[in-house]
Structure formats: C-alpha cells, structure tokens
Write a protein that binds this DNA or RNA. Sequence first.
DNA 1: AGCACGCCGACT
DNA 2: GTCGGCGTGCTC
Length: 736
Amino acid sequence: MDHHHTANPSHAATPTCWTVVVPGPFFGGFTYHFDLDAGPAPGVRVRVPFGQSERVAVVIEPASAEGEQETRPILEVLDEAPLLDDRTLACLRWAAAYYHHPLGEVVFAALPKALRGERRLEVEALVSTPAGRAALEVGEAKGERQREALSRLVASAGPAPVAKLGPAAVRRRLVEKGWAEPTRMTAPAEWSVPVEPGSEAAPALNAEQQGAVDAIVSAGEGFRAWLLHGVTGSGKTEVYLALIERELAAGRQVLVVVPEISLTPQLIDRFARRLSVRPAVLHSGLADGERLAAWRAVAAGTAGLVIGTRSAAFVPLARPGLIVVDEEHDAALKQQEGFLYHARDVLVWRARQLAIPILLGSATPSLESLRHAWDGRYGHLRLTERASGATMPAIHCLDVRGQTMVAGLSPALLRAIERHLLAGGQVMLYLNRRGYAPSLVCHACGFVAGCPHCDAFLTWHRQIGRLRCHHCGFEQGVPADCPSCQAPLSVRGMGTEQLEDVLAARFPGFGIVRLDRDATAGKGVMADSLARIARGEARLVVGTQMLVKGHDFPGVTLVGVVNADQALFASDFRGPERFAQSLLQVAGRAGRAERPGEVLVQTHDPEHPVLRRLLSEDYEAVMAAQLVEREQAELPPTRFAGLIRADAPQADAARGFLAGIADQLRERFGDELAVWGPVPAPLARRAGRYRFQLLLLAQVRSTLHRALWAVDDSVGSRRLGGRLRWSIDVDPIDLA
DNA sequence: AGCACGCCGACT
DNA sequence: GTCGGCGTGCTC
Ligand SMILES: [Zn+2]
Ligand SMILES: [Zn+2]
C-alpha cells in the first residue's frame, strides 16, 4: 500500500519471472519478467506486451528465470494486493483442467467485469502529516469542518479516501496548511450493515427440519456434502436460515448459489427480514459497479452472506463457513456456452478444498446427487411434510387417446378447469411451448414452414404477426397461403399464445395471465403478472417452464399438464428424469392447507412406467429405476461422460473431424473407453451450420480425462480446416 | 481471441 | 496501379 511500482532503476534487483494468463484460447500460461524486487504476486493483474499490442493478464505463479525462450517485461502492476487468493486460484486451475478450458478464460470469467480491464482499484486519498496531527492535538484547527475532517483523517491511522473527508474546499485547506498530503489508496471493500436489523422471528422448526439442522451441526466443521431432499413447501429455506444464522454468528461466511436470477429477490427479501445482515448479491442483472462492490466485500470478508447465480461459484471467500446450492437439480447451474462448468460440482470441490460443509437442496434432486446420497458419500436429509401443513396435490393421468381435443385440451380437463374456476380456485396450465402454434402446414401439398438455417419448424407468433425460429432467431412474415401450391395454410400443434386465446374465449371474465419468455420480456411485466395472480385478478395462468421456477401460487387449486408426452418421450437420456422433476415442481406450485390441489396430466401413454411409478410410488422410486436403466445403458451417472461437439458449414468437415478423433481414441483406449458416434446433433443443422457430436464414456474418471487430453494434443498440433469449430463438454447435461 | 502478414478481385 | 477480402500463423 505504500510503494508504487513505477520504474526505479536504482532499485533494480534480481529480475523475477512470472507465469501469467490472458484471455484467449491458450492452454499454457506465458512467462514475463519484472525487474523490480516487489510487485507481482499470484492473483495480481499486470499489463503486459502481447504480440503487437498490450493485454491485461493475471499472475498465476513464479516461474523459473532460465526459460529457453526470451521473456518480455511486465509493464505495470495493476493491483496492490491479489484479487484472487491462492485457494481460489487453485480452484480455477482445477476447473480449467477438469473442464478442458483455457486457464486465462477461466480466471477472467471469475473476475467481475469491472476488473477485467486496466481499471485500478484506487481512489484519491489524503494522509495526515506530523504537522496535521500536532495541529489537531493543540487545537490549532479552528474551523468546525476542518477540525472534523482532520480528526477523522488522523483517526484512520493512514490514508483515508477523500469521499470520507468532507467537501473539496475543506480538504484543500488541510493540504494548503500542510496538515495533510494527497495520495492514492486501494478503495476499501466496505459493506454496510442494514439500517434496520431483520426483525422477523424464526418460526419453530418441525421435527424433520430440526433433524436436518442437528445432523449438519453435529457433524461439526470440515468437509461434508449434504443432500437436502425436501418436497416443495417443506421449508428447506428455514433449514438454510438456521444454518446460516449459526455460521454468521460464528463469524464465518455463507455462499448461497441459485440457478436463476429470478430466484434471488425472494431469497434476499427472506434473508434480510430474518437476519441482521445485508446480503451481498452477485448476478448478471447488476451494474458493473454494484457487482464489483459486492464481489470485493465478499473477497475481503466484510460481507458475511452472499447470494448469487452460477458465476458466484468462483467468488473468493475470506472466511468461508458454509456453501448452499439451492435447486441443485436445475440444469441452469451448468453454463451452456464457452466455459462449460457446473456450479454445483465446482462448489462441491471448493467445499472439500475449504474444508467446510456444503448443502445441496432440492425438491427433486438430480440423479447424480441422489446416487451419492444413497451410497453414503453425501449425508441424506429428507423433508417429507409440507411445513404449512398443506398436503401435496393429488396427481392423476388423463388418457387423451380417442378424445375430442379442443385446443389441445381434453373434455375431462376442460370440465375440471370449469369446476375449479366456479369453486373459486385458480387454474394453471403448463405447456412448454411458446408462440401461437409450433408450425404452419399445408394440408393440400404437405408443405411445412421451416427455418432456412436450421432443421426446425418456424413457430407462428400471432401477436407480432411473424414466423420465428427458436433456434437461430430467424424470422419472417406470415405467408398468406402455401408458397408451393397456394392452398390455405393451417396451424398445427399448440403454443401458449393460442392456449391463452382459447381459454380467454372459453372462460371469459376470469382473467388470464400468460407467463413465458415472450409475454414477460418487458421490464416489470413479470412482477405485474405475478401480482395479478397473487391478487386473484387472474384466475387462469398459462405458461411454460417459467411456471416451474420458484414462484409459488398458493391460490392455484388445479394444475393441468397439457402435453406430458413431449417430455416423456424426449430423445435425451435424461428425458424421464427431467419429466419427473418438472411435473413435481409444477405440481408443488399449487395448493395450500385449506384447499388441497389437484394435478391432471394429459398423455397418450398412461401406462408409461415413469408416469405410473410417479403416481403410485414416489420420486426416489422413479429415480432408483432410472439409475438401473442408466447402469444397463452404461450412461451417466454410472459412467463418466465427455461430449465433443463440432460444427461447420459443410457436414462432411464436422463429421470427418470427429470420425478422425473417434478412430484414434478407439485404437488407443480400446475397451476402457466407449466412443459413440460421430452422430448428428439433435438439431443437425442450426444457424446454417452442420453439427455433429462424439460421446465418450468411461468407467474411470481418469480414463476420460486422459482421452480428452489426447484429443486436445492431437487437435492442437493439427491444421484445422477453415471454419470448423469444436469444443469439449465434460459431464454434458444434455446431448443437444 | 485479436492482430499481423500475404496473396488475388474490382475500384479510382 | 491500389483497397480490401479473409486464409494462416503467432502471441512468453
Ligand atoms: Zn401447399
Ligand atoms: Zn433457425
């Protein structure tokens, strides 16, 4: 904090060499030298010459000076203290290796945007002089405001930021009188306490909740992973709160990670009401400055509680005590672009490294976590009762075979909707397909409106009068009639827009709200819609996946799942798992104590084993059966999977690239490694590119990684033809 | 990733 | 004759 690292040749000592990383596709680091004896350290940003230009880099570790290659100099040290501590750096190095992603990309992804450039964490400051301290002591400072500023400056025992020392005019007098000198300092990472402490009393925990808390507490400090499997409404959050309170009281930090930004406000509210802390929040909705302040407060340890989305998984923790991952089954915890990490898995690794407990909560845990719990590697905590006393809604199948459907709704479902509306209940219809209709077809010649860039149909968005591709963003006007035979076009299939129209016409006067990406795009629309539902102004709710996430609708007494088959027969091997999770999550939104809910599931296959097991047994039974199937099919989580994707403007380029890799791996690894493919990706042509993939499955994690390193090596040293793009996905969440 | 160098089409 | 297209190669 006291020396600046500008050139000072008289001070030149042993040149030190440092390995640094820059963002970009570089698997190794780069070595630079620095001629002063102090300055760079692991986790510090530096400015370095790079090719013809300059870059900001992050120092990783000292390097041996005698490289075979000439080094270039570090031009400037940008931080006085490391931004990333050694343990966080170690985690980032592990993650880069585990996910086969360049370390520079990983390190920079872990920094808040505001720190990815050259911006220094410095502010203007004043520091008191001996004359100033004497002046204060003898009461020489006459002016009220000068005396106040000076005493505050002296009290700070070092430099203080100008922002804390009153107006500029007052500060200038202090300098003019020789009582203070201008300087610069690292802005302190401050985090205020709430104006009014949380006042809400904790409700008494029920026996199961208390049992969960006791189990974790009595396990003591040190690493242990816990799966908290609590049905919707069982009060998982109260368990989190009880544990968070303990940790904060003990002076340790708690990191809470949720899959969706939309889940943060409710959680923040709840925490703020109950705990006398101001949670630091880390998500992409924040301005860069806000996010920087929160990030620094966490890293410095001034903020005790952090709530964040996926990227918060890498925030440095100064005094870690507990990690909580809520909705741990949610696929949104896995990044889907670029650095393909899974926040839950990274956090389990971090918890082990930091030697602290980690709590994974869900009403519908992932098969991965359930398996760890069944095998005893994770503690298994179950909350089976709804804390409110409400019963879980009853789930029934509606066999729609041979039924006359109206807008995708069977007569039985329509009758049920009417019955619940007349009884004063709210009705929620879940249809995971936005738009008016998923396709426009010509019954005369068989034409279907398709995307020119993808193997996909165009969805008709009637409100905006456009046909849209949901995979590449292509859109066009709606043709008046069939482009190939001029016959009139008709709609096929059902989207939320159409469902909303049909229901509004059929049940007028009940008020209807649609919740999907299109309907809630505007700022504040989502909150508005939720409020309309909460006030009971809207008695009908139509929506997609969005209904499944987080928000509770206690007035809802009927949930209709319009098309279960869509998920039940999805081609992905996780289809049945996803289906069970979505169904229970959407069911859990409904009902409260005095009005038990009802869930009706429309399907063409009421005998489907997943469906039957879900109705007659429970979630764990479904998942246990899934595990048997995965074992037989030699799929995750009983095997370790890596997916290599490639795409190119010509199909042969992508397929050939993967075929070459497949041959090499089969030859080298034989029976140790199953190599599936190359096969066309589920959406084989997307945005004008042909997509193929190669799935690798190994019984032993290290085999998978050896194979993936072999791929890195052989591709890295080979000339890649033209516009071929490829990537590695470790632990792929879906094969799409 | 960015940024240079390098070798072929249509512009002043 | 040049301006600029993006193929190819490199960055300590
Ligand atoms: Zn036609
Ligand atoms: Zn498309």
